[in-house]
Every structure is written in C-alpha cells, then in structure tokens.
Design a protein around this nucleic acid. Structure first.
Lengths: 245, 245
DNA sequence: CCAAAAGTGTTTCCTTTACACCCATGC
DNA sequence: GCATGGGTGTAAAGGAAACACTTTTGG
C-alpha cells in the first residue's frame, strides 16, 4: 500500500481560492403542539423575498460551536439560552451559493417557549414556520436550505429516541404530559399517555421529581406532578417511535 | 423578535481571512477479527513521525463528498471501491492546526478485505491500526485526530444497529457467520450464532440468499449458505448492541 | 469415530401494547 | 354530577436471551 504524503503543509493560497465558512442554524420550538422552525425572509438577492435559515460567518478566532452560539444570539433576539445546540452536517456543494464558495456547517437548536413573532414590521423578517408546511412542499427555501432543514428535522426526531433532549423543549418545570406532547409534536404521533408515563418514569436519570404539582387546566382534570430534567443524557432502552401511519 | 439580515453578501475577504477546507478520512476494515483504521505516519512537522489520518484539501470546484472519494482513492492506493463513505462531523477549532485556519470535514469509509500493508519502505508510512490500540490510549494521533477517530468509531458502532452497512465489510458473497464476525469485531461483542442467524434472516431486505454454499474451513464444519447484500438500507427493528462487559 | 461449524427448536423472560379503570380537579 | 386530564392495573402479544439439539462437513 502506498500513501501520498500530501498534508496541509502543501497548501498554496494562490492555487486554492479561499472558502467562506458559515454556520446555518435550524432553531426549533413547539408552538400549539406544532414543531416549528425559525426562518428569516431574505431582503437581498439572490433568493430575495425567499425564506432562509439564519446564519453567518465563522470568525477567524472562533470555534464552530462558538460561532453557532454567537449567531444564534445575534441573529435572533432570543433572550433564553438555547436548551440544545448541536452540529448535524456540513454542506459544501460548489454551486450552493451563486456568489462565492461557501461551506456551511449546520447546527440545530432547541429553544423552549419561544414567543411567537410579534405583528408589525418584524413579522415580515422572521417567522416560526410549522415543519408540516415545509415537509408538504408548500414552502421552498433559499439555497439548499430545504435539504439542511430536512436533515435537521430527521436528526431531531432520531435524537428524541435515544437521548433526553426532549426535556429541553419544556420549561424548567414540566409535567409528564408536557413531555409527551413534545414527542407527539416532533414525531407527529399520538403516544399512549399511560404507557408513556411508566416508560419515562422507569428510565433512571431521565426525570427528577419535584414536590409540587401543577394546577389543573381550565377544563379540570387531576393536577399533574411536576418534574425537571434529570442527569442522564442518553436513554437506554430507547423510546421507540411508532410507525407513522 | 428581531433578526439581523446578515447574509453572505456582507462577506469581505479582507475582514475575514480565508479558511482552508479539508476532508479527513477514517478508513475502516476488519483484519483477523479486529476493527482497524488506516493511519499514515507524518513525514513533516508539525507532529512529525506521529500517526495521522489521511486527507487533503477540497478543490474549488468539488463537492465535499466528491473530495472525500477522490482523496480516498489518491491518498491510499486502494483498488476497491469503498463500500461506504459518509460524512460524520466537522472540526474547526482555531488552534487545531498551528499553521493555518483549517476546517476539516470528517468522513468514514468501509473498505472490505483491505490487504495488510506490505513490508518494506511503504510500511513506515501507512498502517492498519487496531482500534483497541487507539482506545487504550497507547497511540496518540496528530492534531485533533484522536477525537475525530473516536467520533467515527462511535458513528460506525451506532450505524451497525440500525442500518445494513455491516454487509459492506464483507466480500460480495458472504456467510451469515462472516456477517456476525463483523458485528463482533466492531462492537467487541460475542453474539449468539443461533439468535443472530434468525434475526438477520427475518429482517426483510437485509440479506438476499444465493443458491451456492461456501466450502467448509480447514477444521471441518457444516458448509454455510452464501448470501449477498439485500435492497434494504435500514434495519427495523434494529439489531441491539449488548451492554459492553 | 470425533471435532467443528451451521443452523433449528424450545423455553424463559422481559418489554411493549392496548385498554380498562381509578384519582383529583373545574364547572 | 359530569367532563377532563393524570395516573395505575392488567392481560395478551411479541421479541430477546440462553442453550439444547440436529445437520453436515473434515480428519
């Protein structure tokens, strides 16, 4: 076996035009039991007036994770810390941006309780779009952002199976039904409330019980126990997603 | 909610020094029931004489996947097509290469039946190192390649659970025991031969039966049926990895 | 014959699933 | 009381794990 010893030392900036490196962020939240993604409307060509993902350039002295966190804070005036921010893929097709060679690192973020965009001028620039709108094909995004969002959603759905991140869609204190509604929103499922209850309670480290209970809703019902995120990060055994149908 | 409309149109090459973008490839194969990774010994500083991953620069007109396939063919004189080549993560810490700002996209590849590196001068440059050597901490790699390899191995182990890629470690025609030895090598497990047999046979689309049978080994034994890769890409239900112990 | 590897049968156990049922609240 | 949602019980079905056993080869 022979191996060429090409290494970065061979790099010649004149032979290899520079790449721009950006982070594109898929911010997810749940509103009205719908999984939604934050999109911004482009004000300039190309893809003027199309929806696109928030994102921006990685700075010279920045790690990728740092850049993602900074862009998330800068581009979206989100007050909360994101509950989760994780890389899921990198996109570098030479034609993906007509202006220059851009390699984009995709991150997906969970933000709990994101307030709906206010009406007025702001509403034209940012919107929380239900993923059902995107998956139906009714809304097309700029660049290759359709694929990026699809990959992010697939990763999120998969992550709910074997990690505890679903809790990050919830406020600090939540009921087991709140958590089940997260699963149902992301998976588009209708999990059995009783079985879900047992399952998450017997998974050690998933949830930590609080002494308090929540108030009943407007229409009555037994008050639910309150829980908070436990120390575990992975679920074993995993929560299995039912066949979509 | 407000959103800054920073987009790539704001890019100023003078304000943002260029990034170099490379692909780093974790080539895996199985030799003597050991999962192994292809490493090359660096001939130049930094990390001279350390082991490192093969890789190289993405070209201006190339997609990332294309660059990975090209580098795999160029840097390693592997005659076979890789059975699998998949991106798993991107690494861009500003200090990860002391010479310049490099963002590396990690790919992992499966190559079946990789011939062991021949003796002689070549052997000093490329070697198939058992992952046990790397995971024990006895061998340290250049740059952040320790982490990259660890991530690739984790991805491979996970992929064997719910995809059919394990067949790509095997030659075109293989026995179910061959396939089981792949799982045992990657997972460091000792799966039950009987249960494994039933499990993979009842998973539709995983394996396609051939009419022939393999010859018995030197020490006898009933000849095994021969199979080839089926049309399915995912395993449902997944093959569950036993607790390591 | 025996050893070795392939493949099947069988039993036990555990998890999942479906759904009945009780509990605690608002109206 | 009645509706509503929270939470438990339970029985049937299905899959996983352990292992005995049969099959087919080489020596």
């Amino acid at each position: 076996m022979t191996v060429d010893s090409e290494t970065p030392s061979d790099y010649d900036p004149h032979a290899f035009p520079p790449f721009a490196v950006t982070v594109d962020i898929v911010v997810m939240t749940i509103i009205e039991n719908d999984l939604r993604v934050l999109l911004i409307r482009r004000a300039v060509p190309p893809f003027r007036d199309s929806w696109a993902l928030p994102g921006g350039f990685v700075r010279p002295d920045e790690d990728l994770d740092t850049a993602a966190a900074r862009e998330l804070a800068e581009e979206t005036s989100i007050s909360q810390e994101p509950g989760h921010l994780e890389q899921f893929g990198t996109y570098g097709h030479p034609d993906r941006d007509p202006r220059m060679r851009v390699v984009s690192v995709g991150y997906w973020a969970i933000v709990p309780d994101l307030p709906a965009p206010k009406g007025g001028s702001d509403a034209a620039y940012a919107e929380l779009v239900p993923v059902a709108e995107l998956e139906s094909g009714r809304i097309r995004l700029a660049f290759d952002h359709d694929r990026i969002v699809a990959d992010a959603i697939a990763r999120a759905r998969s992550s709910l199976e074997d990690t505890t991140i679903a809790t990050h869609f919830c406020p600090p204190e939540f009921t087991i039904s709140d958590l089940r509604r997260v699963y149902d929103a992301v998976w588009d499922s209708k999990l059995d409330p009783g079985n879900f209850q047992r399952k998450v309670k017997q998974t050690v480290g998933f949830l930590k019980p609080l002494k308090q209970t929540a108030r009943s809703g407007d229409k009555g019902g037994r008050p639910a126990g309150l829980w908070t995120t436990g120390p575990a990060e992975t679920l074993s055994p995993p929560l299995t997603r039912p066949d979509k149908g």
